[in-house]
Design a protein around this nucleic acid. Structure first.
Lengths: 189, 189
DNA sequence: GACGATACGGAACGAGGTTCCGCTTAGCAA
DNA sequence: TTGCTAAGCGGAACCTCGTTCCGTATCGTC
């Protein structure tokens, strides 16, 4: 509840070092083998034992969140700025969704991991927590401006977009961006 | 290549019996635990050893295809009849897609298994082989009638719809049908 | 009833996730 | 500097699951 930087009892130096190494190693492993990269691989890349991975990141979701936290926060922030910069709320939404798709489409397997149920609940929860309010603001602005139909929720939209991105980089014949475009076009009044 | 009912060298009675039992057991296991149900579970339900499962169905895809073959064939057939019965090609497409979504949404995990890459290539190939031509016919008719934009392929559309169905029955807040509706609406000229 | 081909069962192996505990070492205080 | 203690580490061990393989049982026929 309280802030974590001061409230935490200050960890040992090697612990902090290992956490950094693990985040770097996980990022590299995710690029190479997707977010399902074996825990042992990640541990080996970081030069630590598997026990250390689990101590710092009890679930894979924690590790994924750790790796992508900055980008997710940036995405949440971008929703605010794009509303101010775009010509209309709908334009802002389109641009923001574009950014979201870019993010997902370059993370091997992340879109697939985002659906609930596989033990990735924490990951799903984090994304929902950070991005649904951002998306909701854009959607609401569009509805208020009369550009967007009012009967589609932010969570629903984001799950749809996320699902459309599954497998996007595995198959060149499948263009997720195109289908997302159709879906978003369907939001217009 | 030739027909399988006569060309095959006639199998032993226990083999045929076990294949039936396995299809029944798999169907039950899929309902209970999804299409990722452990092979050992399926074998146990059928009262056979795991070796027997693999002898009859070398890959999980073969088993899934075996279980759902009738429904998939019916879906392929439905494309033809719906074109004749519906008021317009677009209406026919909408109805057919509805049927496709119904099918996927009631098969725990099937939509997820359909994406290529996991060792389900055979499953994906079968669905593509049987359903893409069916969908393509509807799409072409709609394009010819000027109702549907001509720049979206059947494979792309079906993958999009399939992806939107992933996880549909896990979360009551997520309505795949609704989003598929948006996507299909986006196909109109 | 006997024989050969067919099919069966399940032990065994490998890969991956997760836990657990004896050992190491950072940090501190005397 | 040295010694102490708790935080932290490593990786063996265990579990689950997919997959293979081969000795054994059974079917169908002569």
């Amino acid at each position: 509840m309280a802030d974590a930087t001061e409230g935490a009892p200050r960890r040992r130096a090697d612990a902090r070092r290992n956490e950094e190494a693990l985040l770097d190693a996980a990022a590299a492993a995710f690029v190479a083998s997707g977010v399902d990269a074996p825990v042992r691989d990640i541990a080996a890349r970081a030069g630590v034992g598997v026990g250390t991975v689990y101590r710092h990141f009890p679930t894979r979701a924690d590790l994924i969140v750790g790796v992508y936290r900055h980008q997710v926060e940036a995405l949440a922030e971008a929703a605010r700025t794009s509303l101010a910069e775009a010509a209309s709320p709908y334009e802002a939404l389109v641009r923001w969704i574009d950014g979201f798709v870019d993010f997902l489409a370059t993370k091997h397997g992340l879109a697939g991991a985002l659906r609930e149920g596989d033990g990735f609940e924490g990951l799903h929860a984090y994304f929902v927590d950070r991005l649904v309010p951002a998306c909701s603001a854009l959607l609401d602005a569009g509805v208020a401006a009369g550009e967007i139909r009012p009967d589609v929720g932010a969570l629903e939209l984001m799950r749809g977009v996320g699902n459309l991105c599954i497998g996007a980089e595995d198959d060149p014949r499948y263009d997720a961006r195109r289908l997302v475009g159709l879906l978003v076009a369907g939001l217009r009044t």
